[in-house]
């Protein structure tokens, strides 16, 4: 019982430590706005999400994920999220499968 408790405690700490998000934004660009009801730091902005699993083959180099829906052709904000599940997947597949969880905001198209 004691061991299970320790294991659960250890796992919880691991989960907490491995879940984080980082937000990067450009300072000299106009973010694309939107009328949303969101109440987080990206409120008022058009937030797009990328939630996928990338398979990396042994014989190919890593390929970039192409973002095609920014009309301006430029990114304003990128929020990267690392989750416990993602790390677990990475570990059990020896790095061949990676969870990519990214929120991004484009630069507003200039006219």
């Amino acid at each position: 019982m004691q061991k299970i408790k320790i294991a659960i405690g250890f796992l919880s700490v691991l989960i907490l430590l491995s879940c984080y998000s980082t937000r990067i934004k450009v300072s000299n660009g106009q973010a694309e706005p939107d009328d949303t009801e969101r109440e987080d730091a990206l409120s008022g902005l058009w937030v797009r999400e990328l939630d996928t699993i990338v398979k990396v083959k042994t014989i190919t180099d890593e390929n970039p994920i192409n973002i095609r829906d920014c009309e301006s052709g430029a990114l304003h904000t990128v929020e990267y999220k690392s989750t416990f599940g993602g790390i677990l997947l990475y570990l059990v597949t020896f790095g061949r499968k990676r969870t990519v969880k990214v929120k991004y905001v484009c630069i507003k198209e200039s006219n």
Partner: peptide, 27 residues
């Protein structure tokens, strides 16, 4: 017509039709 809806009064509201202008940004 509404802008960025930064006003905190109800000045930008109409219950029928509201128009988001932000993409009309020629200079």
């Amino acid at each position: 017509a509404i802008g960025s809806k930064w006003s905190m009064s109800s000045i930008a509201h109409h219950e029928d039709r509201m128009h988001f202008n932000s993409f009309m940004n020629m200079k």
